[in-house]
Design a binder for these strands. Structure first.
Lengths: 92, 92
DNA sequence: AGTTTAATTAGATAAATGCCTAAATATCTA
DNA sequence: TAGATATTTAGGCATTTATCTAATTAAACT
């Protein structure tokens, strides 16, 4: 798990928005792009950051590249947040 | 709740480390500084970012300024994470 | 094979971030 | 009130980030 990559990826509002768009199912890069006013290139950069954090997964489908949420990282992220706030257990 | 401030604050490893140091009780700026090799000024900057996100609270105690975790934000942060990954409920 | 469509990579630039030292502020103590 | 200690604020610099346009890669369709 790439803790730093995850937090860094989540720090940008556009990237969080991409994640939210993916909650209800995969989308192609182009479909996602419709929701933004950025150039496709900029979006692509954001995808790369999300991918580096393993928050999304990709799959080529013909001409298209399909992005989907990697929900298995969700537990990692939750765990990281817990870890930041939870009082540490006594050693025993 | 300042969503963007929170995610931005969590994006830096030193700031996450500060939060962890505070899990088991308040500490003065100086005590926290001992754990780092940064200048006090740099640390102070990090404190300001954490404070802007309301992740920590401060209280002056004489000469010292005491920092403590604002655990009430914990729920906010958890909620934000949930929101990023949870499949959205059907409208009804 | 050549053209179109989808997406990424390269290269440039402006803005934000993280660090530093020096100066300022606040409190304590002699 | 003067000096010492704790911390923040100001100003400057280097690195990283987010964006753009242009060029490239990959697949699809004639």
């Amino acid at each position: 798990m790439k803790q730093q990559a995850i937090f860094k990826a989540l720090a940008d509002p556009s990237r969080r928005r991409i994640l939210k768009l993916l909650r209800n199912g995969s989308k192609t890069a182009g479909e996602l792009a419709e929701a933004f006013e950025f150039s496709a290139a900029s979006l692509s950069h954001h995808f790369a950051v999300l991918k580096a954090a393993e928050l999304v997964r990709t799959e080529r489908r013909g001409q298209y590249i399909v992005y989907s949420l990697n929900t298995s990282v969700f537990e990692d992220v939750s765990g990281l947040v817990m870890e930041l706030f939870a009082v540490r257990e006594e050693k025993r």
